[in-house]
Write a protein that binds this DNA or RNA. Structure first.
Length: 231
DNA sequence: GCCCAGGTGGGTA
DNA sequence: TACCCACATGGG
């Protein structure tokens, strides 16, 4: 389904949506190039990053990651051996730091309880089963779970975030009322199932969102200019 | 000073 | 189910 500027649905086919999604992808890749996400040195660092960047500018999360590296505790053993208040102090720059310290500890506890602290063991299982388990960890919601699966585990899952919603809505692919799982299904049902594609597509959407498609602002000189509705 | 940022969970009606 | 709110720092 496609939506006009009034939010009213227009008749479309699956093929229209798939084509529209690929055109957006090509435009963005032509503009931004290959982004090679997620920026991190290891899968564990990716996971820590997904928690620290929750509702937070990425820059502030990177300061916190640098603190963890400086303290030499950016590892499952390191996090689990660090008292909560020390952890919270180190990650202060990422905001909501008492909450996030508990969330990091909760993930590491889960990793040890279920997989002996070994990430490879965790990622060895079926992605949808693992997704269910991740969602049971306190502080891991849809977006964090999917970011872990895609960017740390290289599983073919599409990450839906605020940018994804905003951009797809402005381009008439969403009405604005869809839930997380519906948006994810729209993307995954209309794109080839490939980790590299999902990785790059989401990275492109985030880059577009940061540079052109900001909240409450118009898309001046947007790389998607002229593609249907550009609200 | 105000708004926003690569969310999540708990509470209320 | 659908909102509201707390969590909280740093940059524009």
């Amino acid at each position: 389904m496609l939506y006009g500027t009034d939010g009213i649905a227009m008749e479309t086919t699956q093929q229209d949506i798939a084509q529209h999604l690929l055109i957006i992808y090509d435009r963005l890749e032509g503009h931004f190039g290959d982004l090679h996400w997620w920026p991190a040195d290891s899968p564990f660092e990716v996971i820590v990053g997904t928690i620290l960047t929750q509702n937070t500018a990425w820059r502030n999360a990177t300061y916190a990651i640098a603190q963890l590296k400086g303290a030499d505790i950016l590892s499952p053993q390191g996090i689990s051996a660090t008292p909560l208040d020390t952890l919270a102090t180190l990650i202060k720059s990422s905001g909501c730091y008492h909450v996030k310290a508990k969330r990091l500890a909760a993930f590491v506890r889960f990793l040890y309880d279920e997989y002996g602290g070994i990430l490879d063991s965790m990622f060895a299982q079926d992605q949808w089963l693992l997704r269910k388990k991740l969602l049971q960890i306190h502080g891991v919601g849809n977006e964090t779970a999917d970011s872990i699966l895609l960017y740390a585990g290289a599983k073919p899952i599409f990450v839906v975030d605020a940018y994804t919603r905003r951009i797809l809505e402005r381009h008439g692919l969403l009405s604005g009322r869809e839930r997380y799982n519906e948006i994810q299904a729209l993307l995954m049902n209309n794109l080839p199932t490939r980790t590299s594609l999902f990785n790059q597509y989401h990275a492109l959407l985030v880059n577009l969102g940061k540079t052109f498609c900001q909240k409450n602002k118009r898309c001046a000189a947007c790389p998607l200019e002229g593609l249907g509705d550009n609200r």
